[in-house]
């Protein structure tokens, strides 16, 4: 045998001796137990059973069961929480919200500046149109008016309808002022220079056809998107109402949105 292998066996010897001692000790320890505990214990024979009993004490069993039950309820609770969260996300308007709206500064029909910041803190109806509009704009503005009257009866003055002109060449501040005397008194008319109106329309995903060099004296019509946008008090887009939505439908929808907003944010407007 080489020198190397002999050292190898020598080094292993203490391990084997140690183990044999342990085995001896265990059998010594176990023996009194089997003797003192007759009955059931007598029938459990063999080192394996005894070892199992040695690890699996009643305390350990109780701990095991308790941990199991605890984990079971913990996971069930976590799963429930996850489900609730997902449900809330589904219901919440903040998920999958369309990116409509953006910064702008225009002039009101009272010749005061008005920016997107002035939309905050109120429920806004934003509508784009022009004063020389043959039939759709006045009909939509009247619809906003009737919706306003109905909602203000229930909620007070927490609404702000905004009418943004897509015909800045003709819709001057005074023109807007005269035009709006025919409609709900709370409607705010907004106009500005062509570039500002264009950027505002772009932010609101509104298309319009007025050429930048339109002659105010000309008799022309403007083709434009005809949606009424509902924006929440945080200035976030909520819904777009088309021509086919009736005033009652709009009122119902707005009421639902208000109660949901109050639930979500915990505050009233």
């Amino acid at each position: 045998m080489s020198k190397l292998s002999s050292t190898y066996f020598r080094s292993l010897r203490p391990y084997f001796t140690g183990r044999s001692i342990q085995c001896q000790r265990q059998s010594i320890c176990m023996r009194p137990k089997t003797v003192t505990a007759p009955g059931r214990r007598c029938f459990t024979s063999g080192a394996r059973d005894r070892a199992a009993v040695g690890v699996f004490t009643p305390t350990a069993a109780a701990l095991f069961v308790a941990t199991g039950v605890g984990l079971f309820y913990y996971f069930r609770y976590e799963k429930q929480k996850l489900l609730e969260q997902r449900q809330k996300e589904l219901e919440s308007r903040s998920v999958g919200r369309a990116h409509v709206g953006g910064p702008f500064t225009l002039t009101t029909h009272e010749n005061k500046p008005f920016s997107d910041q002035d939309l905050l803190g109120k429920w806004n109806f934003v509508y784009f149109g022009f004063t020389n509009c043959p039939d759709i704009c006045p009909a939509e503005l009247d619809k906003i008016g009737s919706v306003m009257t109905s909602l203000e009866q229930d909620y007070g003055t927490i609404f702000q309808p905004v009418f943004i002109s897509v015909d800045p060449a003709r819709d001057s501040v005074s023109q807007m002022k005269t035009y709006l005397t025919d409609f709900h008194p709370h409607i705010i008319g907004l106009t500005g220079d062509y570039a500002t109106v264009k950027t505002t329309c772009k932010a609101y995903r509104v298309y319009f056809s007025t050429p930048p060099d339109a002659d105010p004296k000309d008799d022309y019509l403007v083709d434009h998107s005809i949606y009424v946008y509902l924006m929440d008090p945080n200035g976030q887009f909520v819904e777009a109402f088309g021509q086919s939505s009736t005033p009652d439908e709009v009122v119902e929808r707005v009421k639902k949105e208000i109660s949901e907003f109050e639930k979500e944010t915990g505050r009233k407007v």
């Binding site: 006045p138 003709r170 005269t178």
Partner: peptide, 23 residues
């Protein structure tokens, strides 16, 4: 309001004007 012979910009139609036109 609709006759455009003059150089002035005519004011927008009022509710009555619109009603009359539609009728």
């Amino acid at each position: 309001w609709f006759s455009r012979s003059s150089a002035e910009q005519s004011p927008a139609a009022t509710r009555q004007d619109r009603q009359k036109c539609w009728e």
